[in-house]
């Protein structure tokens, strides 16, 4: 029994705005299940006194001083924009028809 159901994957796909075919859902359910089980086996190996980590390297406090650096020009910023008005990005109305 996989830790991830097909419904879980379909739900995640919807949240992530990814369109998936039935075949892709089946495939991903299996693959994600394997990943979840693999991670679970790490938890078994780690005892309670091992703190959780989110990074492979034990680094902390990587900071930048508060000093202004170079910026893009508006033209550069908008270079890949599908549409723009003056120096702003133009996007479709999001809550259309509400």
């Amino acid at each position: 029994m996989s830790a991830i159901s097909r419904e879980d994957v379909a739900h995640l796909a919807q949240l992530a705005h990814i369109e998936m075919s039935d075949a892709e859902l089946d495939k991903m359910t299996g693959e994600l299940g394997v990943i979840v089980e693999s991670i679970a086996s790490v938890s078994e190996a780690a005892s309670a006194d091992v703190p959780a980590t989110t990074h492979p390297i034990a680094l902390s406090n990587v900071f930048r001083e508060d000093i202004v650096g170079p910026t893009l020009t508006a033209e550069e910023a908008l270079m890949n924009a599908p549409d723009s008005v003056d120096t702003r990005f133009k996007v479709p109305a999001i809550l259309d028809g509400e």
Partner: peptide, 27 residues
């Protein structure tokens, strides 16, 4: 009111010409 943004060295200034205080990180 820091001089720069949280994760990028773009200036944190109100009221400038749109999309001029941006870096690739901001975008």
């Amino acid at each position: 009111n820091t001089k720069t943004k949280m994760f990028s060295s773009a200036p944190n200034v109100f009221g400038d010409v749109p999309n001029t205080n941006v870096t690739p990180v901001c975008l």
